[in-house]
Simulated scan of single mutants.
Amino acid sequence: MTARIVRILLLGVVALTASLSALSRADEVANSKLSQPLLPGVGARGVFDPSVTEVPETRRLWMSYSSFDGSLHSQSGVNLRIASSDDGETWRDVGVVQEFTDVEVGPLAAASDVGELYVEAGSRGTWQNGTSTLVYDQHAPRAQRWKLFWQQALWVNDVPRYASYSWIALKMADSPGNLAHAPPIKLFTGYLTRTTGESAAAPAVSPISGPAAIQLDKKDPQLGACMFGQPAALSAPDGLYLALDCAWLGTRALLHTVLLRCTYPGCVVTDAATWKVVGRLTEPRDGPQLGEHYVGLGGTALVEKGGRYYLIATPIASTDNRYDGCNVYRFEDLTHGELERRRGKLVVAQTVRGIPGTHHGACAAHSRLVGGILLSQIVSTAAPRVMQIRRSGVELPRD
């Protein structure tokens, strides 16, 4: 597998490697349906990858998102931040809940089958955080009701090592504001993850030391060759659901989305026995069925509106590895992980499009958002804050 294919299937901080060379015209920005950027003063290079949830008692909305900031070792360092809103329109940044770390790493062995090169000792590395999902789990003990899942990955010389040094991480707290002080947990690792990433010392200088709570690729044959990314969480009456992008690493990388459920009552997120693999939500064929120029779907979110459940997924263009908007799909049955299909083809219930020809996708939605679904959008002419979160003007389906 070439390094180019791995980058197509990053499943994580895709925006960090997206090409910024194709400039967006100012008139395209002005004439689009997109709002002005949310949180315009945050991040040296802007913000991306929102996730929105609500406190049932107060109805306050909370959003986790990625902030692209200055780094000594990489083009950007990706922090996770949270913001709050009482009206679904005006957002107030609350602060960083997980910081990136610049480190010196190496030596790291080559993994040529997935395009990862040998790294010498003393190389410039950055542990990045991205693609977070924030969920309120009212069935959990009070100290664990707020959960933040994200992908943490090591970049060396500004190149990701998603296969060997990457995992799904977790923080839990009694309130969103206390997530910043909560200890991070290495929750899930996937296929080809190196045990040398378990040490806080060389060669990888891991920010979360020790083995993962769950080796997810070993839990079920359906996950056996998965490199995981882009978590999307949802609390439903029967359990805590988590969708993950999976790049199935073989002779040819295959991209799909898997759905897990930690069943209520008795869900303990760090206990493999309480997680069940519900099945696949999207398949490798679903991208090309949308158009021959798509390699697959990624950048997912799980959403509830009026008792109906939806998956929001981003088509990934094969020509330039970019996100190309968002599609909304209805669940026919969340418990069994079945999306609405017709003759085997996913039925698109709604589409969200940003500026044509640019990198845009990784959406978030909530029924109380003013201005519709939130869209991550790269606008190169807005340098230095080219990463933006905007209101799309597109609502979730009414039914």
Rank of each mutant, 00 (worst) to 15 (best):
A3H: 06
I5F: 01
L11H: 13
L11E: 15
S19Q: 10
S24A: 15
A30S: 13
K33N: 14
Q36F: 04
G43I: 10
G46F: 02
S51C: 12
E54L: 03
M63N: 02
M63E: 01
D69L: 00
S71V: 15
S76E: 11
L80F: 04
I82V: 15
A83E: 11
R92G: 07
D93E: 11
G95F: 11
V96P: 12
Q98V: 08
E99T: 10
V103I: 11
V105F: 10
L108A: 04
L108M: 07
R124N: 10
T126N: 03
Q128C: 07
T131S: 15
Y136H: 14
A140G: 03
P141T: 15
Q144F: 08
L148S: 03
Q152P: 05
A163Y: 04
S166A: 12
A169C: 02
L170P: 02
N178P: 00
I185F: 01
T189V: 09
T196P: 01
A202N: 06
A202Y: 10
I208K: 05
G210H: 03
A213P: 05
D217H: 13
K219I: 15
K219R: 14
Q222P: 07
L223A: 02
G224M: 14
G229E: 07
P231V: 06
L234Y: 03
L234H: 01
A236L: 10
D238Q: 10
L240V: 01
L242E: 01
L242I: 01
R252S: 14
R261G: 02
T263A: 13
V268W: 10
A272D: 12
T282Y: 09
T282H: 11
Y294I: 12
V295W: 04
L302T: 02
G306V: 01
G307N: 00
G307L: 03
R308S: 04
L311K: 00
T314L: 02
I316T: 03
R322A: 06
Y323S: 06
N327G: 12
L334G: 09
L334M: 08
H336Y: 13
E338I: 07
G344R: 08
Q350T: 05
T351G: 15
T351C: 09
P356H: 09
T358L: 00
H360Y: 00
S367E: 13
R368S: 10
R368D: 12
G372I: 13
G372V: 14
L374G: 07
S376K: 04
I378G: 00
I378K: 00
R385H: 09
E395T: 12
